[in-house]
Amino acid sequence: MGLEAKLQQDGFITTTIDSIIAWARKSSVWPMPMGISCCAIEMIAAADPKYDLARFGSEVMRFTPRQCDLMIVAGTVTYKMAQVVRRIYDQMPEPKWVIAMGACTSSGGMYRSYNVVQGIDQFLPVDVYTAGCPPRPENLINAVMTIQKKISKTRARDFQDIPMPKPETVNN
């Protein structure tokens, strides 16, 4: 729609590499649904016909981290689970973003207890925090849109320093 109107004549547009890459990236954010507890149900609700996350190009929930660029941590992260969440985050290819969905992941929420990590930012770099316990699907969609805004500001050279992934280390 927007693009075709400009392509009526010979069909070329001028833009920068940075902005076209950022535009492509932000319009097809593939989330990694790290569904742990209650928020996971609302995450499914956000993808269901009523709220339809597909309108924002993020309906392709991939359960393998290697195909994703956005991790939605949905649910209470315990100490035992933290190791798993981190391991999955490490397997995602760069560049990657993280949404802390809900109060538990943002700050521990209502769980002031021995086994709950009081905020996943203790071991993950979080880009967007989402309020609510659990957040309504609209709120999750808002978080995805915020991530999109953030992505649209990135430039290709921001990711120059990212090292190539190393082969996995093994315990011997």
């Binding site: 035992k80 933290a82 981190r86 021995y114 086994n115 990590v117 071991f123 993950l124």
Partner: peptide, 22 residues
């Protein structure tokens, strides 16, 4: 053993490992 009464609700700091911060 967490449900013993002498174990604090907030746990004992450092008893459970957390991954390093990035």
């Amino acid at each position: 053993h967490p449900l013993r009464k002498d174990f604090p609700v907030l746990g004992i700091p450092g008893s459970l490992p957390l991954p390093e911060k990035i």
